[in-house]
């Protein structure tokens, strides 16, 4: 167990060094925020849900048994919180502040023709045409790089269901992107 491993940090937090929780927040906030943003498609809601997720996780830290990765457990909380908010709120609209968009990963080849902010807008528009369950599995798989097993743990679906849903959502997303004119890289 490394000095900065999740398990080590959680152990320290449980023993009273609760300020170490900031390290875990810094480590996972981008992944959680982006996942939630793809699901709820509203920046303000996504910020609020991300905060709530970390606060809830802190309060429930005693219940984390280490049976899954901490990130999986955290995403499960984010997933449930997002669904609760979506059930309560009105239909969502896209509110992406393009000036705040920033690439964190410099893969220069594949989508070279598209600007970063445009890229996000296109993807967000395409994702908006998917159902919530489809958005969830696609985002967890491609954005959060979760395995099928982890997606099953987060969503509460069976692994075989996840596979089917993932296959269908992926085809649907590619088809939508092609119709939007993003063909140079989907072919």
């Amino acid at each position: 167990m490394g000095i900065h491993s999740d398990d080590h940090l959680i152990e320290k937090i449980r023993k009273g060094s609760w300020r170490n929780y900031a390290v875990l927040i810094d480590k996972y906030n981008t992944r959680v925020f982006n996942y939630v943003l793809f699901i709820v498609r509203n920046r303000e809601d996504a910020e609020e849900i991300t905060q709530d997720t970390f606060v809830k996780a802190f309060r429930s830290l005693e219940q984390f048994k280490g049976e899954s990765k901490f990130s999986t457990w955290l995403l499960r909380i984010a997933h449930n919180t997002s669904l609760t908010v979506m059930r309560k709120s009105r239909p969502v609209k896209v509110e992406l502040a393009e000036s705040e968009l920033k690439s964190l990963n410099g893969n220069e080849q594949v989508i070279a023709g598209l600007e970063q902010s445009h890229l996000r807008s296109v993807l967000d528009e395409a994702m908006g045409k998917l159902k919530t369950a489809e958005k969830t599995v696609v985002t967890l798989f491609y954005l959060n790089e979760c395995s099928v097993q982890e997606i099953a743990q987060i969503t509460g679906l069976g692994a075989s269901n996840v596979k089917v849903l993932l296959h269908r959502s992926r085809k649907k997303l590619l088809s939508i992107l092609q119709k939007m004119g993003i063909e140079e890289w989907t072919n």
Partner: peptide
């Protein structure tokens, strides 16, 4: 396709709000 979709998602990552932590 999978690789390209992954690239698309990864490149469209948005920074989390400042001061969230």
């Amino acid at each position: 396709d999978d690789r390209l979709l992954k690239d698309l998602f990864q490149q469209s990552l948005t920074t989390s709000p400042p001061g969230l932590s």
